[in-house]
Design a protein around this nucleic acid. Structure first.
Length: 876
RNA sequence: GCCCGCGUGGUGAAAUGGUAGACACAGGGGACUUAAAAUCCCUAGGCCGCAAGGCCGUGCCGGUUCAAGUCCGGCCGCGGGCACCA
């Protein structure tokens, strides 16, 4: 065996795996299957360390499960539609399709050297007609089932990307991709009826035991179920057709604190009243005040008294004014509320501004009614002792009070309990070119006509121009104009394309039969679904994962997935980011200048870290006077400021290119490093020293293997039993750690075993057996070096295809154990006892220990606790 | 504002309520070398002590327990999610 040279062995083993077809997923009914999937990448053109960490985790699981006898499906694809391709076309010319395919080729070439156990024969790209044509077919099925519909709606309009965004894609009032302030516009759009599944998507979260609690909570909050009362106010002086106004409240127990009713500027009554110039002016002001979602959030509350009155449902003589208010949303509840300034901060602000009455209904015992008028009482206030004025709510507060108030309303016939959800339907129309075309045609006489299935896919035309903003499909000379599929008359194709989140909502199902002429094939989907382990970033906790859960249900409803697949991901793991320090200097105008890690040198001298610009050596005489050296560096502008670790980003230049690491150390080192130290759900900081350490470790394993290879075959050695024990314990520890996604602990155990083997002097067969087992245990993390060791030490076949080792249970327990002896909870002595020594004998032995006798100093023992195999505690 | 999570050496981190700091990085000391690199060995929470050893120690305060990093209550700090949602 020569020097450890990954650049030689890694390509060699990758070729060997390919030739053996080692990673081709086989539908084998005689074996249990295991489907492991990492969230597929957007083909930006470059892989980054986050990808390396994500795919290495999936690969560890895939290789491990495969060794355990499962038929493994571990595919890879490309989330290939979306804005960046169009932006590139607009900025640099070229075509989105060419740009995307070029990026896919580049990224694939970067992923291959990682040695991932991916079944590349199942590769797919969402921008290929073969894929999106099937998506169109499903769209038509969903249309037929009423799961897709069209409506005019206020939408989130991204003025930079010039497209509509889903609610989920608006973050802090800004477009999730462009970062531009989002505006509100009314457009006719396509929607998925995800709201039909609100309750189910919520309640099924309880069954997702192997999902992070955090993700389930985020989804539950997003779906946002609330229980409240819906009731109608009778109006006084309202236009015809508005005899009643429906309102919804989650706090019906505060009904006696009502002081006004308010409707949204978009409410039908508000629109009716717009004939009045004053109302029209007010509504215009609401719109003018802020078209952007960001402005709306900070806008001042404004209102307009319509002059209309409504009767309080519990007292017909009690009339409340009806206001139009800018803070009432038309698309939640009924678009109308009753205001209770006594207990709602927002209503309180509004009432204070417009001089409306304020009345608290929850009072502390002993407080007079008058004291709490004109005051705001938080509902959680501990002062609450009884409820004023409303027998229906009794004296209960919180959920009981709400339930009692709803019951009262239902018994007395003025309202019903209603469950509402925050989740809205998913708007999927995008006014973009580079997406899946929506397969319908607009006909003057037939209306919206679905494209015939035999005409699918509706392919994107290639000849488009990006010289003008907006959607190139809209101005395409021929693609747009087609005959109506129903009557044949000249008609127009839908030019909107689908949100790219549609593409990623079912790719996991498509992987089960990626080339089929239907979206899925029942037998394949039945065998491979569900995804047993899904791995990706927490940033998809809501959007992608919620959409996929909806889509799996819709696919079941349209016959494309079996019932068992409606929750498509059995287990979810959300991995942390790869972070790095940021290196910063300041230019002569005081602006920050960032530097790549490879452009600085880090020194640690006398416990001080000094980062210097450039690849430099410290002058030897300066090392004795570090402060002088630092001053000299600062004068030359070479002293670099270190900003604490953050997510790798191009703008901060704190990126490490995986290709450079692989070129320098090999893929095994990169894989080993990203799995070490930090638990996988936490962020891991990339450090040059850590990467070097990983490489040194693998080199040490290599040279240990070399040493064992040169041992004479008849070498007797010593300590074989102890070595076998260490090996068994490592098998046990690594197996349990991988099973529980604690890769850092698996690696710690492997360091331990390496240290044992490196220092051991066992017989040749025992040493060979030990290092072969080490190679196999390492192989999910470092598959290449493992293969080299495996073959060098006479392992049969490929290490990748060898079975996972089993620990002999007899070797896992020691015959004698060292037990600490505590006196009053403080450790004072140790005794060595046989593993199965009975408690009373252990007690005797502990009390006979000379250290114990010394510490007891003759005090009487009150109690003695023996935890077998663990600890002894003497209480005096 | 509402909902969640997390605080352990110089650093990344381990620890079914049972010897806190496994494993590793950085550090210190030594061997080898003309020297350096590489490699190997030792050391390594803090304080006191020549040592043997002792005391303190998991953000802070209290509680439960023979025993608390771990369980409970209350603070402080950091991070994340949601938010005119009626």
């Amino acid at each position: 065996m020569s020097r450890y040279d990954p650049s030689v062995i890694e390509p060699r083993w990758q070729k060997a795996w390919d030739e053996a077809g080692a990673f081709v997923a086989r539908h084998d009914p005689s074996r249990p299957k295991y489907y492991v999937l990492e969230m597929f990448p957007y083909p930006s053109g470059r892989i980054h360390m986050g990808h390396v960490r994500n795919y290495t985790m999936g690969d560890v699981v895939a290789r491990y499960k495969s060794s355990c006898g499962f038929s493994v499906l571990h595919p890879m694809g490309w989330d290939a539609f979306g804005m960046p391709a169009e932006n590139a076309a607009m900025e640099r010319g070229g075509h989105p399709r060419d740009w995307t395919h070029g990026n896919i080729a580049d990224m694939k070439a970067q992923m291959k050297p990682l040695g991932l156990s991916i079944d590349w024969s199942r590769e797919l790209a969402t921008c290929d007609p073969e894929y999106y044509g099937q998506q169109q077919a499903m769209f038509l099925d969903m249309l037929e089932k009423g799961l897709v519909y069209r409506k005019a709606a206020m939408v989130n309009w991204d003025p930079v990307d010039m497209t509509v965004l889903a609610n989920e894609q608006v973050i802090d009032g800004k477009g999730w991709r462009s970062g531009a302030a989002v505006e509100r516009r009314e457009l006719v759009q396509w929607f998925f009826k995800i709201s039909d599944y609100s309750e189910e998507l919520l309640s099924a979260l309880d069954g997702l035991k192997d999902w992070p609690e955090k993700v389930r909570l985020m989804q539950a909050n997003w779906i946002g179920r609330s229980r409240g009362l819906q009731f109608a106010f009778d109006t006084v002086g309202a236009p015809q057709g508005f005899e009643r106004i429906e309102v919804y409240t989650t706090r019906p127990d505060t009904l006696m604190g009502a002081s006004f009713a308010a409707i949204s500027p978009d409410h039908p009554l508000a629109k009716e009243l717009e004939k009045d110039p004053a109302v029209a002016a007010f509504i215009a002001e609401c719109r003018r005040g802020g078209t952007s979602a960001e402005e709306i959030e900070t806008a001042e509350k404004i209102g307009h008294d319509t002059g209309i009155r409504v009767r309080h449902p519990l007292d017909p003589d009690w009339e409340l004014p009806v206001w139009i208010a800018n803070f009432i949303l038309m698309d939640y509840g009924t678009g109308a509320i009753f205001g209770c300034p006594g207990h709602d901060q927002r209503d309180f602000d509004f009432a204070t501004k417009y001089g409306l009455p304020i009345k608290a209904v929850f009072l502390a015992e002993g407080d007079g009614d008058a004291e709490l008028d004109a005051a705001f009482v938080p509902l959680k206030s501990e002062k609450v002792r009884y409820v004023r004025g409303f027998a229906g709510a009794g004296v209960q507060t919180g959920d009981e009070g709400v339930a009692a108030a709803i019951a009262h309303a239902e018994q007395n016939g003025y309202g019903q309990g209603v469950t509402k959800y925050r989740l809205r339907d998913w708007g999927l129309s995008r006014q973009r070119y580079w997406g899946c075309p929506i397969p319908v045609v607009h006909c003057a006489s037939c209306g919206v006509v679905p494209e015939k299935k035999e005409n699918l896919p509706v392919e994107l035309p290639y000849d488009v121009s990006f010289d003008k903003p907006g959607n190139p499909l809209d101005r395409h000379p021929t693609w747009r104009d087609v005959p109506c599929p129903a009557c044949g008359a000249p008609a127009r194709r839908e030019t909107d394309t689908m949100d790219t989140f549609v593409d990623s909502s079912w790719y996991f199902a498509r992987f089960t039969s990626p080339r089929a002429a239907t979206p899925t094939v029942a037998a394949e989907a039945d065998y491979w679904m569900n995804v047993d382990q899904y791995i990706g970033g927490i940033e998809h906790a809501i959007l992608h994962l919620l959409y996929s859960r909806f889509f799996a249900r819709a696919m079941h409803a349209t016959g494309h997935l079996p019932a068992k697949a409606i929750e498509p991901f059995n287990a979810l793991f959300t991995q942390g980011m790869v972070t790095h320090e940021i290196y910063k200097t300041t230019d002569d105008k005081g602006r920050p200048v960032y530097h790549l890690p490879e452009d600085v040198t880090v020194f640690t001298i006398a416990d001080r870290r000094i980062v210097v610009l450039g690849n430099v050596e410290p002058p030897l005489d300066m090392v004795d006077d570090v402060d002088a050296w630092i001053r000299a560096l600062a004068d030359e502008g070479l002293l670099v400021e270190v900003v604490p670790s953050a997510k790798m980003s191009k703008s901060k230049k704190n990126v490490v290119d995986p290709m450079n690491i692989i070129a320098q150390f090999g893929a095994d080192t990169a894989r080993w490093f990203v799995m070490s130290d930090s638990p996988p759900e936490r962020d891991v900081e990339w450090t040059a020293s850590g990467a070097e350490a990983a490489f040194k470790h693998l080199s040490r394993v290599w040279s240990t293997c070399d040493r064992i290879g040169q041992m004479p075959a008849d070498h007797k050695g010593e300590g074989d039993a102890e070595l076998a024990r260490s090996v068994a314990k490592a098998i046990d520890e690594v197996t349990r750690s991988i099973d529980s996604f604690a890769f850092n602990k698996a690696i710690a155990a492997l360091y331990g075993l390496t240290n044992v083997i490196a220092r051991a002097n066992g017989s040749t067969p025992a040493m060979k057996e030990a290092i072969r087992t080490l190679a196999k245990l390492m192989s999910p993390m470092t598959p290449h070096i493992s293969e080299s060791i495996w073959s060098y030490q006479g392992g049969a076949g490929l290490c990748a295809q060898a079975p996972w080792p089993k620990a002999d249970p007899a070797l896992l327990v020691d015959d004698t154990v060292t037990l600490p002896v505590q006196i009053n909870g403080k450790r004072r002595a140790e005794i060595s006892v046989a593993r199965d020594m009975p408690g009373p004998e252990v007690e005797k032995l502990a009390l006979a220990n000379e250290d114990v006798i010394k510490f007891l100093a003759g005090q009487p023992v009150k109690k003695i606790i023996v935890v077998p195999g663990r600890i002894i505690n003497v209480v005096v």
